[in-house]
Design a protein around this nucleic acid. Structure first.
Lengths: 222, 222
DNA sequence: CGTCTACTTGAGGACTGTCAACTTTCGTGG
DNA sequence: CCACGAAAGTTGACAGTCCTCAAGTAGACG
């Protein structure tokens, strides 16, 4: 469990201290929310098992509150950084499958950051990397076509799972087509059509949520 | 100058300490870069005067290295957080006009964060807010049409300038149409056409880079 | 004052969204 | 364990938005 949560680059003693803080874990059942927009922020979380999505419910006039998925969190990912800014969460975090998270009370964590250099450094790096991931996502949305976006999502999922020790070519998409669409800025129909086309082209085998990548270079070349 | 840079929520003594660290300022001429992708990261910056954009040069196969604007920084905004993650900057920061920035050596700043509660808290909040801003931008790109994106950008500019004490209805866009397009994920032609249409509709007066908003509610309703 | 860059505007076409019908999968309760 | 209803996914036809290509105008800078 240790290696799943936040550590990395902490000495043994620091890890022990950290462990003391994050002694609480919490289970979330598929479809349930870990937190919702507007909830007061008091803890950070690290995904222990399962996966979650973050969504914002756009208060736009025209859409009448359509949901928009903004993030996909896998085991080991940190979650809840959005709440630090104003003390309230700015999005919902919903479990895509039955999942569990480590709970990290922020007040304690903040204090410990001050005492432990390496933890502070790690915290800053984590947040910086979160910023970069978002920026990367913006680039995807803004200058790629629908099929390029889907291809990159598949490759990205594969890489992230590989880093966690899972098979790279075969995995289950926990998101619905609707989620994928809202994550990539397109409609669920376009997602479905694109996956079907990739399948016909021999790039992947897709049936429902289970994906098998057959031609990595082909996908990269889309 | 004090109120332009990072403070806010710091007591007088802390501000003095901070001031000591950020004694250096740097001028950047229009078109020049404050830092570039891959540069080793050693300082954060705060915009003192002028404005800058951040751009990533996409290494995509198809585009052959087209630029993509990812951020617009005005006086008072912090800059450089992207570099903390891996010790190297992940984007270019280019001045949109002759500008100056406060230089904040990160090693010193990091140490001071550890000593000063309020500064650490402020740092975390800043990064969290940066994450939220990006997320907001993602939502814009993903679920709004071209004219909605342009309308929101104009309103956003107006609000940000207002917060800095400038007129809300009249301002100069330092970005080119190309910049705006790449920021909003569309072509410069679409930007131009959209502004022209807004002008004809009486929502704004646009000639070249100078913008005057005539009907705020109209823009919001787009 | 000339040249280069930025901007505007038009025509045509590609991509993706919308609407709709249908099939498959999933979850719940008998 | 099976059956049923609901949710998720697929596929087609058509329409609209936005991009591409192109030509010409206005503005900036030396």
């Amino acid at each position: 469990m240790r290696h799943l949560c936040m550590p990395e680059g902490l000495c043994a003693r620091d890890v022990t201290k950290l462990e003391h803080i994050i002694s609480v874990t919490r289970k979330i059942r598929r479809g349930d929310a870990l937190f919702r927009t507007g909830d007061t922020f008091d803890s950070l979380y690290a995904v222990r098992s399962g996966s979650l999505k973050t969504v914002v419910t756009n208060d736009g006039s025209r859409d009448g509150g359509r949901e928009r998925m903004t993030g996909l969190l896998l085991a080991g990912d940190a979650l809840g950084l959005d709440g630090i800014g104003d003390g309230r969460h700015t999005c919902d975090a919903v479990a895509l499958e039955d999942s569990s998270v480590c709970v990290v009370p922020y007040a304690l964590f903040e204090r410990m950051c001050r005492e432990t250099d390496s933890l502070q450094r790690r915290m800053h790096r984590m947040m910086s990397q979160a910023i970069n991931r978002e920026a990367e996502h913006v680039v995807r949305l803004g200058m790629l076509r629908a099929d390029e976006r889907v291809a990159r999502l598949l490759l990205d999922m594969s890489a992230r799972l590989a880093r966690r020790g899972y098979a790279t070519a075969e995995f289950t998409m926990r998101m619905t087509r609707d989620d994928i669409g809202s994550y990539l800025g397109m409609t669920l129909e376009t997602v479905s059509r694109t996956l079907s086309r990739f399948d016909k082209l021999g790039l992947i085998e897709a049936q429902g949520k289970s994906i098998r990548i057959r031609d990595f270079d082909g996908l990269r070349g889309i």
